[in-house]
């Protein structure tokens, strides 16, 4: 959680300095994400949206993997194809994210059905926000999950806002979790700032899914402390007191306080952890920034397993333009 928060802070400042092009912060959602990820098995498949930094880190996605993606350099596993935050890493069973909202939801159902057919004891988890519960894909996905009783967890982080639209304008339902009722399976609301509560809820949902008791929709109530993205100005649509109110329930503070009362965590240990984490990030950033750019024609790769003749011609055209210095890398 500390690593996620510290990386978030660093990336926001890197974006302001123009060193990365764009950034989607997760501040405020760490406990929900990490609590969920820790309750899963590494073999479970994650279908993320774009704000799941805490999940990625908890799954073992490394700092170099993330920072290279944010820059889009030659170390980027995605080869510079996507905007920052839209990443995916097969080795960590973290399926590549896209921008169109909700699309991952029915996909998670399909993967869960496939795993069941293969006899693999895994669940799939779809991550999405409150706003995304208004998409077609959300409804199609939950309906299929109900009908086929797929071993899927729908993990909705209700961070109260979809850019400028408050949760209250998204649906007249009292909770998002109750939408599961209509699809014939279980929906639960959890306090997403409470790491332990999230962990227990996901663990239970996972056990039930594997036992054949069907999917669960979990609504984790959280708050997006920062802007929607670095292109957004939340002052236009929400008030400071509202943010301050939620900041009192900062999941990092809550977790720290809990560890200090229930365990042997101390201020000194906490400070040391922050220093260590910031150092690791600084070092990883230095390496990422020194990594070479992508080869210029690499954007022509991976459209198909074997390129079409048209693409081959286009590659020759581009090679020729670069070779004659008509255009430059």
């Amino acid at each position: 959680m500390v690593l996620a928060r510290a990386l978030d802070e660093r990336c926001l400042s890197l974006q302001r300095q123009g060193r990365i092009g764009f950034y989607v912060p997760l501040e405020g959602q760490e406990a929900a994400q990490v609590g969920c990820a820790l309750a899963l098995d590494p073999k479970d498949w994650i279908f993320p949206a774009y704000r799941e930094l805490g999940v990625a880190l908890a799954r073992g996605v490394t700092l170099p993997e993330l920072l290279d993606q944010f820059i889009g350099n030659s170390g980027d596993r995605l080869k510079g194809r996507q905007m920052p935050n839209h990443y995916g890493y097969r080795a960590q069973n973290f399926v590549v994210a896209s921008s169109p909202l909700g699309t991952q939801i029915p996909q998670a159902v399909g993967a869960a059905l496939a795993a069941r057919r293969r006899g693999d004891p895994i669940v799939t988890v779809a991550f999405f926000g409150d706003g995304s519960t208004s998409t077609n894909d959300f409804h199609a996905g939950l309906n299929f999950a109900g009908v086929f009783r797929s071993p899927t967890i729908f993990f909705c982080q209700n961070n109260q806002w979809a850019i400028s639209m408050p949760r209250s304008r998204q649906t007249m339902s009292a909770t998002l979790a109750e939408k599961a009722d209509a699809y014939g399976f279980r929906g639960v609301v959890v306090d997403g700032t409470d790491l332990g509560q999230v962990y227990r809820t996901v663990t239970e949902a996972r056990t039930r899914a594997l036992a054949g008791d069907g999917p669960t929709l979990i609504e984790a109530q959280v708050y997006r402390f920062g802007p929607h993205s670095t292109s957004d100005d939340p002052k236009r649509y929400r008030s400071d007191p509202e943010v301050a109110e939620w900041r009192r329930r900062d999941p990092l503070l809550r977790t720290k306080e809990h560890l200090m009362t229930a365990g042997d965590w101390t201020e000194a240990k906490d400070t040391a952890l922050w220093t260590e984490v910031r150092g690791r990030i600084a070092e990883a950033w230095k390496a990422a920034e020194a990594t070479s750019p992508l080869p210029p024609t690499s954007f022509l790769d991976d459209v198909f397993s074997t390129p079409t003749p048209q693409l081959e011609n286009q590659r020759r055209e581009l090679d020729d333009l670069l070779a004659r210095k008509v255009i430059h890398e």
């Binding site: 350099n73 080869k79 996507q82 954007f299 459209v303 079409t308 286009q314």
Partner: peptide, 14 residues
């Protein structure tokens, strides 16, 4: 543009 999806890092070449 080329017959590819729209790339991020290399859009200036696309």
């Amino acid at each position: 543009g080329y017959d590819t999806p729209f790339p991020y890092a290399l859009e200036h070449l696309y």
